[in-house]
Design a protein around this nucleic acid. Structure first.
Lengths: 226, 226, 226, 226
DNA sequence: GATGAATGAGCGTTCATTCAT
DNA sequence: AATGAATGAACGCTCATTCAT
């Protein structure tokens, strides 16, 4: 990726944070370390106190950036989905065939993540593992409707919608493009999880990736007719 | 369902509980009330203290039955999957055609739950909602591998495997029966959740159910060939 | 006071406490020490943490008895007013003349407190000083109406009403018996405070007590006519 | 009140503030907004952080004016009592009869407050409510003697003394002029409070005001003899 | 077997304040 | 003079758990 993009930013709903963590060094360290720590110890065990200690800063400073750890998780996962969307858009832009666009999109959304050097304080590989293991906790709450109204999940929704639109374009007769889109995006996380912890429940493994599975599915739907 | 089955029990891995809640009145009240309360307030907010208060019993008594609330969730969800498996087995037994068996299985696993009068201290409708909203939290933990080894998720695994086998029988050429099976079971929960909270991300609604969506998918796979 | 009364208790609205502090040794130590500490450091500086440390007990144990320190203050002051009411009732019982009853009541309510040996874990002298310095903080809150509805101030109200009734009996023509009653009870606290901290603002001192001042006032009102 | 008085100022002990809030626009906004906010949320809940946010200024700026919120309360209440004294002086100046002066003074000190247009950044009605609900908290502290020595309560003391002198002039035989003065000034606040929150403990209401009650009392004392 | 009492540990949060700009 | 960023310290509170009965 060329240096023209060096200054790109993933845009996050500003209600998720109190103060933009990108706006200061401390903010970036909060984000950077929180990824390492949540990956390390899991979201439940992770606390602002521990984070503060890790970055050599009082926990109260962290509250200047995020109201609570739930909001921080929303920030991290929003960033992740925004980053995915960005890749999806960039990499499908030049493709002329809808089917190619769709296949590229599915590939991006289901493949194992590799490091992106454009964002130096974010470890995308670890972040993707956090998303696999923690994302659902960000919406499986009693406050989901309220937070949804605040737009906390809008990037994710936009991404699901993009994929849905691609499916629909490729096969306008298919009756469940939205469900399929959400199944792929959420299902990809799930297959990655199963691969690591319940290998008997998935066909994905070292040689067969979730991408193979979902690509196969997409091809079936693409070619199906009423 | 006839009275012969009146005494049927869902068999739960005995390591999940300290003392079988089915073995006493207090145990049953613990299970019964915990379902109401977790549904009401969500798993995070739910505590043994509150449960104790609700059933008019000291919280320490609950520890006689479950080590902690995580184990209680494992118990409830195991019960749910065991109950599902039971229905799946019973209702596919008499079907001779593999395809019919598969379709029946998918129907059971994806449909909206209705009350089952065979188990009077368990509200299956509420429990199914808990499963939708909380099940993933039971395995998205740092202890998952260890608990998996203890067999805490074996009923669920057996269920996924049953569905996988049905898929394989119907279409031995299909390369991803396990992934598809897990996608359907977990995806059904997800579609139910989306229907309630993110209607834009699913095609399921009051008239189109997750069952329609997954049945359509199954039919596609069943008829696909290499 | 004879031993027949040895087992007397001041009855406190049970919503003020979680668990009756009179019901256990720990509870009594909480009450006892809190009086010493609030007197020592003032209510603002006083915390459950410090109290816990002082009684060699974790602060969490204190929460078993009182929801928060505000409730504890309500308890202490309710106890005080209940104790005052008890003395007022006992000591006016045998008096036949309304005027004598009234004078006795005013005397009790305005005099400097001395130790009462009937309640061994409560230092009435210190408690009365706490009431002087902290009682108004218990009702000068945004929650006063709500707490009043819960009956948290009912003992105090009953006491004011008793005095009002005595005033009314002595002089049925006097138009402000309630205001006078509340002025005496609250004003007595205020005069005690001024005596200690703003001697220029009161005529009360080592030789002239608030009792003299209010008794004089009462006599004026008793003898006034329309 | 004519425009000649337009520039009048209430003189406050300069130790109460770090920088005179009257000396700048920010200072005036601090005073203005703090009155609104303390009235709105109560003194306990009110913080410099919230005040800073409300006036669109960093909380650290407020520290340029007031050391802490306690000092700000002292400032506001001092202003109130200074303003009361000013009215008392002005309005009794032209009266020749001591008894008339006393009655006018009591009337001013006990009546319901109405807006004074001479001070545009201070809402006297709200401020008087703050005084009713918060004034006692400004002196019911462990630091009262020390702060008293610093003269933080001198305006209030001067006011009590003025009323005391009027009482003494009217009835030189009355033995408790200081106590009566402090009782009236503090008691007026109390009766206003009771009227709003404990109507059963006062005879004051929509038609009978604290002024009636205290005026009646004053008349009794004025006419009493040894 | 069930309960009541008590606890240790720690979480999330806020406050008042300071320092550098 | 005013502000922005950051912080140390502490608070209120709750949780999961244990122990003695």
């Amino acid at each position: 990726m060329d240096t023209i993009l060096k200054n790109l930013r993933v845009e996050i709903n500003s209600n998720i944070y109190v103060k933009d963590p990108e706006s200061s060094d401390l903010g970036k360290r909060i984000v950077e370390s929180s990824i390492l720590m949540i990956h390390e110890m899991g979201f439940e065990t992770f606390t602002f106190r521990k984070l503060g200690k890790a970055i050599g800063s009082n926990e109260s400073s962290i509250y200047r950036y995020f109201e609570n750890k739930h909001k921080l998780l929303l920030y991290l996962t929003s960033w992740y989905w925004g980053w995915m969307e960005y890749q999806l858009v960039i990499q499908t832009l030049s493709l002329s065939q809808p089917k190619d666009k769709l296949r590229k999109a599915v590939q991006i959304l289901t493949k194992e993540i590799v490091q992106d050097l454009d964002f130096d304080h974010i470890d995308e590989v670890l972040l993707s593992k956090i998303v696999v293991e923690e994302y659902s906790k960000s919406y499986l709450t009693k406050e989901v409707d309220q937070e949804n109204k605040q737009g906390y999940f809008s990037i994710y929704q936009r991404l699901v919608t993009r994929l849905k639109d691609l499916i629909h374009t490729v096969n306008p007769h298919y009756k469940f493009p939205a469900s399929l889109s959400s199944t792929i995006i959420e299902g990809a996380l799930h297959q990655h999880f199963l691969k690591r912890h319940f290998p008997a429940l998935t066909d994905c493994n070292a040689t067969v990736s979730p991408t193979h599975y979902f690509m196969d599915l997409i091809d079936l739907i693409a070619d199906s007719h009423e």
